[in-house]
Design a protein around this nucleic acid. Structure first.
Lengths: 225, 225
DNA sequence: GCGTTCATTTGCGTATGCATTAAATTACAC
DNA sequence: GTGTAATTTAATGCATACGCAAATGAACGC
């Protein structure tokens, strides 16, 4: 479905979408270099839109433009992960607090509730991929409910950067039972319009997740993703 | 002075720097439209580097590329200000907390102390421009001490977006005496390695500033900057 | 006078070509 | 064989050209 407000999709837009996909799918692995001309041919367009797309993705921290070496897909180190989780913790906690201040009805919270239900169901089936997808949806929706467009943009950017890492850690971590309980707590706090509790619970949730992931990376000596 | 590590300054880099300057100086006012060809001629280069620079500045929230209408300098509304201050509050408070955890010596805190001293001196002389410059330095240095590169990048971006607003509000607000006291408190908490206090004090500082600015904008019916 | 259609102009999006310069390769001296 | 200088190669950074769609304005009917 294509709304009338959509602006026509330019090649540059396609390049952005497609390059992101290639990075997340691992077809362009972290740390690898790629000539502009190579990417241009691969996506069936000239270097111009590729360069513009790369500029955008560069300022989003996904890759780097290096003279004469093409674009380098940026690896994510454990230190990067710590930075990113710290940012996510702060901004999502703010979003949770603000969401709880809005006095949302349960109807407003439908998507959030559905994400939680989907996570529960996926967890029962031990279907971690589906769980991860629903977890993403929960966090995205939580931030949306917070009502700050900049927080949305930043958290989306940060989540992009750790997406590759999750593919690795998801199957090394214990079953995310605690996570699901955390989410329900945050949901309740928002539904009951208790901003302080929503913030505190979500912060604790994120800090636990951060420590768990960083612990995993360290124990498995994963220096970059 | 040009270190050997500096990569050669490309026209695109020049365009980024120069366009930012033009926006902050008000030569390209908020809300105005500018043809790419016009900007290209103005900066003495072709449209190509202008477009690449614009892409970068677009993802930093300073302007917008619109088909056939050229580059639009994005205005900042009071709602935008609220969003930006919320983000700054969260991330700078985190930086203050982290800075206090590092066990910095007073030598490490020299720049921070100097910024405070400069603000005091400027305040005595009622030299608001110098005060604002030192205030900037304080916040930048505080975030640097926090040690999170992403927080640095994001807060720098957000500060850019409100820079124009300050030119307006700086001379409408009461003398920032409270601000200077706040800064000293944050400094002390970092020097005494008291993370929780550093965080709380800085948060209170930012929230006061936000409410003051938003109040000013509302009282003066300033709908966009 | 007002709306509608058609012609014209304009500016972006993109492809293409080329100069520059860093990197790679070879030639060569020792 | 190793280190250095000369030569070649190659990829970016940028200027330029052009098609196309949107905006503008003209022509025309009512």
């Amino acid at each position: 479905m294509k709304s009338q407000l959509d602006k026509p999709v330019s090649n540059t837009d396609r390049a952005i979408t497609e390059l992101r996909r290639l990075v997340f799918s691992g077809e362009l692995p972290a740390g690898s270099d790629h000539l502009e001309s190579e990417l241009a041919e691969r996506l069936g367009m000239s270097r111009t839109p590729i360069r513009e797309a790369a500029r955008t993705l560069e300022s989003q921290g996904l890759l780097e433009l290096r003279a004469r070496k093409g674009v380098r897909i940026l690896p994510v180190s454990p230190e990067d992960m710590r930075e990113i989780y710290d940012v996510l913790t702060e901004l999502e906690s703010l979003a949770a607090e603000r969401a709880a201040e809005q006095g949302y009805s349960t109807t407003d919270l439908t998507d959030l509730a559905r994400a939680i239900a989907d996570m529960d169901a996926a967890l029962d089936r031990k279907d971690l991929d589906t769980w991860a997808e629903a977890d993403d949806r929960f966090h995205t929706e939580l931030v949306r409910l917070g009502g700050n467009a900049r927080v949305m943009a930043i958290t989306a950017m940060m989540s992009d950067q750790v997406r590759r890492a999750r593919a690795v850690t998801l199957f090394m971590r214990p079953l995310p039972v605690q996570s699901n309980e955390d989410h329900r707590g945050v949901y309740e706090a928002i539904a009951k319009a208790d901003p302080q509790r929503a913030r505190d619970l979500h912060r604790a949730h994120r800090e636990r997740a951060r420590d768990m992931i960083l612990g995993l990376l360290e124990r498995h000596r994963l220096r970059q993703l």
